[in-house]
């Protein structure tokens, strides 16, 4: 306080420290933290839908640029009424499950090989880097020749799409496994296969599972491309047909189905993470 003597606003110098007036320290620590707001997301979503509906009804949003949400909902309801939804869903889910499962299984195998064997790393990792960025859609004509216009080319498109991100996630995960844990395994004389099974794979699992999120999204993105060729049923085929017929209500309904599919997959992977990575939290 004595330093403040020259300032006119300072407390009178004659006052003893004990007698000085007290005031609380102002709180300055607010903001910059996130609190959960459970109801905000649904509210924002609902508000957007209502605005959209109003825009469509009043003609502010032209009926050739977007359908009203109720029209899209009606198209969705039609899918359920006619039972076509199950045909489309089952066709798409089959392609997604088979393509994605095979793609990720192969991806994990190749990723582990690259992560564990330096020969495989030297031989395969440049190849993976070279092939990963190729848009699989560009290869579609070749896939048709190689795998036919039946389920083969569709599954293959999704398979290739999910294979590469899984490879990269897996060997990145293996690379990031704590070396000291591996050294510990060796120091206790664990066999090579025990070290791989009990230390390296569980250690790489978080990375592999986040790779799953990416590969599953890519699989869904590729669904439309995969169903471009010779697909009678499937959500992608439905969207393409809606586009060709300029039935934009069905188009939006189909896109909404894809989003729902994405949400469902994200939820499933979240569950798997909770189950397999419970030790992490």
């Amino acid at each position: 306080m004595s330093l403040d003597r020259s300032l006119p606003s300072a407390a009178p110098a004659t006052e003893k420290p004990g007698a000085a007036p007290t005031r609380p320290v102002p709180f300055r620590g607010s903001g910059f933290t996130h609190r959960p707001h459970r109801h905000v997301a649904p509210l924002v979503f609902a508000a957007l839908l209502i605005l959209w509906e109003i825009g469509s009804r009043t003609g502010f949003i032209s009926n050739i640029s977007l359908p009203a949400p109720t029209e899209a909902a009606e198209a969705m309801a039609d899918l359920f009424r006619s039972g076509m939804i199950w045909k489309h869903l089952s066709a798409s889910l089959f392609r997604l499950t088979v393509g994605w499962s095979l793609g990720t299984l192969l991806g994990i195998a190749v990723g582990l090989a690259i992560g564990l064997f330096s020969v495989a790393r030297a031989g395969l990792s440049p190849l993976v880097s070279a092939l990963f960025p190729i848009p699989k859609i560009a290869l579609l004509p070749l896939f048709i020749v190689w795998f036919g216009i039946g389920e083969g080319s569709k599954v293959a498109t999704i398979l290739f799409g999910s294979f590469f991100p899984t490879v990269i996630a897996t060997y990145g995960g293996v690379d990031n496994v704590d070396r000291s844990l591996i050294r510990m395994g060796q120091s206790f004389g664990l066999s090579w296969s025990s070290i791989v099974r009990k230390i390296i794979i569980p250690g790489a699992l978080p990375a592999i599972l986040s790779g799953f999120r990416i590969s599953a999204s890519i699989a869904i993105i590729l669904l439309v491309a995969a169903e471009m060729i010779g697909a009678e049923y499937g959500i992608g085929a439905y969207i393409l047909m809606a586009g060709a017929l300029y039935a934009i209500d069905q188009l939006i309904a189909g896109v909404a189905l894809l989003s729902l599919l994405g949400l469902a997959v994200a939820w499933l992977i979240g569950r798997a993470e909770k189950m397999l990575l419970g030790w992490r939290i």
Partner: peptide
Amino acid sequence: LTYVFQDFALLPW
């Protein structure tokens, strides 16, 4: 010959 490590080296899972 068995090690005890400074950073414990426990498997978190």
